[in-house]
Design a protein around this nucleic acid. Sequence first.
DNA 1: TAAAATGTTGGGTA
DNA 2: ATACCCAACATTTT
Length: 275
Amino acid sequence: MPELPEVETVARQLREGGARGPSVIGRTVRAVTVTWPRHIATPTPAELQARLPGQTVLAAGRRGKYLVFTLTQDTLLIHLKMTGDLTVCPSDQPPHPHDRTVFHFDDGFDLRFNDARRFGKVYLAATAQAITGHLGPEPLEATFGPAQLAHCLHGTRRALKTVLLDQTRLAGVGNVYADEALHRAGLHPLHPANTLTPAQVHALWRSIRAVLRLGIRHNGVSLDWAYRGGSFQNLTRVYGRTDLPCQTCGTPIRRLVIGQRSAHFCPVCQPSEAT
DNA sequence: TAAAATGTTGGGTA
DNA sequence: ATACCCAACATTTT
């Protein structure tokens, strides 16, 4: 369940306690079970299992689509990729079918990383920066204004949709929220990124922030078995609505494949400028 | 059965 | 050197 609002929802729930179990803050790792070694991106599984015990969780947050846990010595980062989810529960609770990496705390609770597709990754590093240093700016930061978005779009003729998904240009936006933001801004997903007028950049900036905030308010998007607990899927205007009427103008929503990802848009509200 | 699904990365090509 | 495309990762669901 991977985009910024979904990751933000998980981070908040793990920090404050909630739908994913009690808070992780203040708990100390006793041991780590690794059932799928390739889940551990860095360091080696053995080294991770040696370094984590004894470290206490001091903070839980998010950078882009990475969950960031600040520990006593190191920083633990988790990327949920397509199907990952995290929950805190008593250690004696029976495991779920796709539990992969389990962090056992010394107080009888576990932090369980469930991941059907096994694309998720665990990182342990001295600083978060070592793992997230390549990411672009955070779209919801107070300092992220239209000028910062213009910089993200600068110097490439690639499709807007492709650039919005490029985490090194802008962190956190994924397939659902990119489509929704482009629809609200009235921009075609294939529009070349470096040809927007200042007014269009401003509209896109507002749309991105509005859509991400709305997603967070609704705890993200629930998609079948992969992620549960959110309701934003009921509010999408184009994503997953192929052939259904545009809620603005009634025209059937169309679907294109751009950069191996589906792009949903309204051909009337989001006209293609070129040719 | 074929197709598609929220994401990234690394290699090859132009 | 840079920009960009595409296969690969592994599983489930429709």
